[in-house]
């Protein structure tokens, strides 16, 4: 039986659950796992004080219950599968290098922050800074995929260098801030000031948008590479309208402050309506 942790109570302070990932629980009994020390606020507590632990450690780990104050779930994970049945706290999957995390509900801030590899799937919405670099970091996310079925908060994909942040809903303000490269896609559009300081990244907005003055309108076309990426989003479970696969997009080049090698692609509904 898969190792399952069920939250017993809401913890007295925020909890860092990063010591528990499939790699460290594999082959361990529920009793052993319950004895693992984790940080709760400024103190260390045993996992068993906060969670009922059952099953036996395999390549999969399941978390249940009220997890809103449980942070850093799967942070630094290198492989295996981690399933969160419900919503979770901040920094889920931060800096993970491989494996898969699925969150049935919402995730807090910094979901998949500085991701190196692997997949983070959020069936609900994500808080601010999904796939972003932490403050003080020049290069944030460097690989992997983050898929958010709902909306994302501010600064999704900020400072990212490689990889994909795919949002089924809307991205908040400041998406792709100081991006070096990589792709942020928001099927229901991005908020204000998207791509400020973007060097070579791609920001894709499924809704109309007035880009920052640092962007210049370049071309209206049917980008084949984008169609491939959108098909990948469908594989990952997002609902991508056919029109987006076949329709035209307007490409804006920018940010001019960073030599205009980045872009914002905006789905051009008028063109589709006309065509």
């Amino acid at each position: 039986m898969t190792l399952t942790l069920t939250a017993l109570t809401s913890p007295p302070a925020r909890v860092d659950l990063s010591p528990l990932v499939p790699e460290t629980t594999r082959g361990r009994s529920a009793i052993e796992v319950a004895g693992t020390a984790i940080r709760c606020g400024r103190d260390r507590v045993g996992v068993g004080e906060l969670f009922a632990v059952s099953g036996y450690g395999t390549d999969e780990l399941v978390l249940r219950g009220e997890l809103g104050r449980i942070d850093r779930i799967g942070a630094g994970m290198r492989g295996g599968r981690l399933r969160v049945e419900g919503s979770c706290g901040d920094h889920v999957g931060a800096r993970m290098t491989g494996g898969e995390i699925v969150i049935d509900g919402d995730a807090g801030a910094f979901a998949g922050a500085e991701l190196r590899g692997g997949l983070v799937r959020i069936e609900g919405s994500a808080g601010a800074s999904a796939g972003a670099g932490y403050p003080g970091t020049r290069a944030g996310m460097s690989g992997g995929e983050i898929v958010i079925a709902g909306d994302a908060g501010q600064e999704a994909g900020a400072a990212m260098r490689r990889g994909l942040v795919a949002i089924g809903g809307r991205a908040g303000d400041g998406a792709g801030l100081r991006m070096l490269a990589g792709t942020v896609i928001a099927l229901r559009g991005v908020g204000a000031e998207a791509g400020m300081g973007n060097k070579r990244g791609s920001i894709v907005s499924g809704r109309p948008l007035r880009p920052l003055p640092g962007y210049a309108r370049a071309v209206r076309y049917r980008p084949p590479a984008l169609a491939l990426q959108l098909r990948r989003l469908r594989e990952l479970g997002l609902e991508v309208p056919d029109a987006m696969l076949t329709g035209a997009w307007t490409r804006w080049a920018g940010d001019r402050l960073e030599l205009s090698r980045g872009e914002i692609l905006i789905f051009d509904e008028e063109e589709v309506a006309a065509g």
Binding site: R39, R42, R44, Y134, P135, G136, T137
Partner: peptide, 21 residues
């Protein structure tokens, strides 16, 4: 210290009975 937030966060020091964090 402020400029190197990325360096410092990889090396946290826990509070103990004796030591400050």
């Amino acid at each position: 210290r402020r400029l190197l937030s990325d360096d410092r966060r990889d090396d946290p020091i826990d509070r103990t009975e004796l030591l400050r964090s």
